[in-house]
Design a protein around this nucleic acid. Structure first.
Lengths: 375, 375
DNA sequence: ATGAAAGCGCTAACAT
DNA sequence: ATGTTAGCGCTTTCAT
């Protein structure tokens, strides 16, 4: 209760001092009549500090509206409690959902998610990745549409942990990742249509989608083969690359209608594409699922209140987010890594567009209650 | 070309040194045989440095894969070249568009946009705002759904420039902002329907939307009065608060259909709401715009390829983004402020849902005009 | 229980 | 033209 004097060791410097000065730990120390060390320890709840001191410091800090400077703290600790999230611009609904889950999970674990600016601009994923590395984020979760090697190598160099989510990986990948088996997912989607009796199933694809397309194509073809379809190449349709997926689908609908040998079903890898497609068909009086059945790959939750709720093969987004966060944080803490490469399955969400509901209407009881004790 | 020795003044410290060390300016200095000052000056293109030196330093830096530590730099400069963007979770399409424009504009001006985590989580806008303040961003662009005073006050305290975008402001506001005249916008939307002959125009609203609703209501009512409608309260409909706006609209459609005194048009403040509404009506065989005309407040670009492209009253998003960025950056640079409070107008985007196109092409919407002489 | 001092990596004033 | 030094605000070791 005496030292109103600054602890002597602050001979202020010339210039920066007056520039926009905000309250620092020093100001609090002065006000509380103690050293800045004591303030720091108090504010961080060190057991070394008396309860009385701690309270006094806290009060003063509050009175002065002191807020710790995160930048200084980060520099000193070489830790920022910040996670970078790289996601290319305009992620579809699935990825938007994934981002939300990621944000929530990370926040719970006291890390702050920091979104790449590529999410809102057309800036390059690679560039954003590099920026995060410079920013000294503690770790990165990357949803990239390239092969991962380049990213992995660059992050390894500076020792920054990265977990890839929803990427495409190879068996010899050293990277940490959580992804889905796209081949299996496409297989499920196509198989569902096949099981409903369809044999001519169109598979429109984006010719430029070099990374994600091949596994889906394989899944689709495998399903066809297993169901005894001979010419598995017959209904493949590349479609023009448009910014607007809905329009792409709409335009494809136009083309589809003019087909001589019109398929009875369509399996597409984008929900918005499916929406546009269905729109065009209905405009021509062609019904979905009545005349043409549709299954899409992706999240269809948003279609529940739309023209035709779309049956989809969905990612387990929440699990992916949680696992990715978990793996990343383990790496950051330097804990033994456990399983850090995961490939998950999909979930078939049956809505209206495939026609399964209509076909099944009332005919079958729900058999999923296997072990339920119904008393 | 001699000093292979470190300039002597680096007696390494005990602990942090070995933790995850990344290449620093010191390492480059050592490699290039000069002081770290020279490295810094070279890398920042100071005219004080010889071209030869600069090149040598740059080469070494590259060889060592040196990247400057932004954290240290920020601490030293008390500047981070970073702008925080606060936007509540799940912004609608309009705001999503605004964010994209903001990102692009800021990036062009060499600032890095940093999205609030509230964008992807349900975290509080206010909390995110506070975090940005602690993060020492150079400035903030805030899209908040509260009154702005609290934010303004808090930012002023720490001398952090803030520009509010799309907020609701009062005439005595001291804050910098770029916003729209919602009353005028709603007036335009309602007037458009009135001009098409409609007199019974439903105006569903979200009861909890305390900040943005009143001006829109005023605009709607003013339009009605100007067109001689007497009972301007008659078609106001509060609707239950739902997470899912499309569902809200769908449910409202249900209610609307059961109305004894059914309006011939609807003016709503959300596009997704309009989509759900239209969906429900069409399901019941009620056509839009044939039987009911619809105008929404917000961005309708995404509806172009949908069931019924929706006529909307739109924000001038690009202008808003550019102006907001401009004002903010001027504040950061400490330049004379110029005009830093702007209220912009809307743009009526006529699509299909209002029936104006159909009307122009000869066919008339089915109006239920009070005393109109329908031929 | 508290204070002194060091130092994270950088920029810039000042000295040479 | 380049090097020395201080210090941004913080945490932590060490000494008292």
């Amino acid at each position: 209760m005496d030292a109103q004097e600054p602890p002597v060791f602050l001979r202020k410097n010339r210039r920066y001092a007056e520039t926009n000065r905000r309250v620092t730990i020093m100001d609090v120390a002065r006000a509380a009549g103690c050293s800045h060390t004591t303030v720091s320890l108090s504010l961080n709840d060190s057991p070394l500090i008396t309860e009385a001191t701690r309270r006094r410091v806290r009060e003063k800090a509050k009175a002065l509206k002191y807020t710790p400077n995160r930048v200084a703290r980060s520099l000193r600790l070489a830790r920022s409690q910040t996670i970078g999230i790289v996601a290319g611009s305009g992620p579809d609904q699935s990825r938007a959902g994934l981002l939300r889950y990621l944000g929530t999970t990370l926040l719970q674990k006291k890390f702050r998610p920091f979104l790449s600016s590529s999410l809102i601009t057309r800036q390059d994923e690679w560039e954003c990745f590099g920026e995060f590395l410079e920013d000294r984020v503690d770790g990165i979760i990357a949803l990239v549409s390239d092969r991962v090697e380049r990213y992995e190598a660059s992050a390894r160099q500076v020792n920054c942990p990265v977990v890839f989510a929803l990427g495409v990986h190879q068996s010899d990948d050293r990277a940490d990742y959580v992804t889905v088996d796209r081949e299996e997912g496409a297989y499920q989607g196509a198989a569902h249509l096949l099981a409903l009796g369809h044999r001519k199933i169109a598979f429109p694809y984006r010719p430029c989608d070099l990374l994600f397309h091949p596994p889906k194509l394989r899944g689709y073809q495998r399903a066809l083969r297993e169901f005894g379809v001979v010419d598995v190449e017959r209904h493949l349709f590349p479609y023009p690359v448009e910014m607007d997926w809905t329009k792409s689908g709409y335009d494809f609908g136009e083309k589809f209608l003019s087909l001589a040998d019109r398929p009875s079903a369509v399996f597409t890898s984008d929900v918005r594409f499916a929406m546009g497609f269905i729109r065009r068909l209905r405009k021509a009086g062609v019904g979905v699922p009545g005349d043409v059945a549709v299954v899409a790959y992706g999240s269809g939750r948003d279609t529940d209140w739309m023209e035709v709720p779309i049956t989809t093969v969905e990612f387990p987004l929440k699990v992916i987010a949680e696992k990715a966060a978990e793996i990343l944080i383990r790496r950051i803490q330097g804990e033994p890594s456990g399983d850090s490469q995961m490939t998950l399955g999909h979930e078939l969400a049956i809505r209206d567009s495939c026609g399964a509901k209509a076909a099944r209407e009332g005919s079958r009881p729900n058999l999923d209650l296997a072990g339920a004790a119904t008393s």
